[in-house]
């Protein structure tokens, strides 16, 4: 139940506050713009829908990761370090953060999904295709969210944390594309008509990343508590 209290608190801060509303408004404006970009006519082999899909992935990943890592600080939101001193157990905190990341990622993905549905319908694609794309968005953003949460409890320096977080994400999303054409890479798996196995592999990998990092958070919390209680 304490995990759910963390989820409620986080969602209230991320959606109910003025800053939360402003972030959501900016996020939905970006999604809207990407939707308009996706209506561009097909020319040659470059589909604007591909650009829009990758753009939506980047936007959703950015908002969810920034919220999870504290890069966007919402008033009243308790970060993991704030919860260290609370009476909640380490598992409850880790579960709570995992669930709040999942809930926020779901909210952001649901905000972007109708745009994917619209772009698919525009090209008479099946609606299931947009659902599969949304599943990739959800899994990847939750996985990166978990990674950001873990960095928040592992790296003390804010600058280093930011550099590591965004450097890692940019290097992964952009650099991996340069290294080779891997179908399971999120930038490829989110494309329209990507193979199902590639999407499954991508989603499973990022769910694994999320589970792994939040497990690591749970492991890190007792040590942090010791540092807090036994520190100078």
């Amino acid at each position: 139940m304490n995990s759910l209290a963390i989820v409620r608190g986080d969602l209230r801060a991320r959606l109910g506050t003025r800053k939360g509303m402003a972030v959501q408004a900016a996020f939905l404006a970006a999604v809207w713009l990407l939707g308009l970009l996706g209506t561009g006519p097909e020319r040659g082999g470059d589909s604007p829908m591909w650009v829009a899909s990758v753009g939506l992935l980047v936007v959703v990943v950015y908002v969810v990761t920034a919220a999870a890592g504290g890069e966007i600080a919402f008033p009243g939101e308790k970060a993991v370090l704030d919860l260290v001193a609370s009476p909640f157990s380490a598992a409850e905190i880790a579960w709570g953060k995992a669930l709040s990341n999942a809930a926020f990622a779901t909210v952001c993905t649901l905000g972007a999904w109708p745009v994917l549905l619209f772009l698919q319908a525009l090209r008479t694609g099946p609606w299931q295709e947009s659902l599969a794309q949304a599943a990739v968005l959800l899994a990847v953003s939750w996985g990166f969210g978990g990674f950001a949460t873990w960095l928040g409890v592992t790296v003390e320096s804010e600058v280093s944390r930011s550099v590591l977080l965004w450097g890692g994400i940019v290097a992964f999303l952009a650099g991996a594309g340069l290294a080779g054409s891997w179908p399971w890479h999120p930038a490829n798996a989110v494309r329209p008509l990507a193979p199902g196995w590639a999407r499954m592999t991508c989603a499973a990998s990022f769910v694994g990343l999320g589970v792994l990092t939040l497990w690591a958070v749970g492991r890190r919390l007792p040590r942090l508590r010791e540092e807090v209680h036994g520190g100078p």
């Binding site: 209230r12 959606l15 939360g20 939905l28 999604v31 809207w32 649901l110 109708p114 619209f118």
Partner: peptide, 16 residues
Amino acid sequence: LGAFAVLWLVSLAVAA
């Protein structure tokens, strides 16, 4: 798309 974005934003504010 804009109508959906606005309605979604309002519904999230109410849900919070």
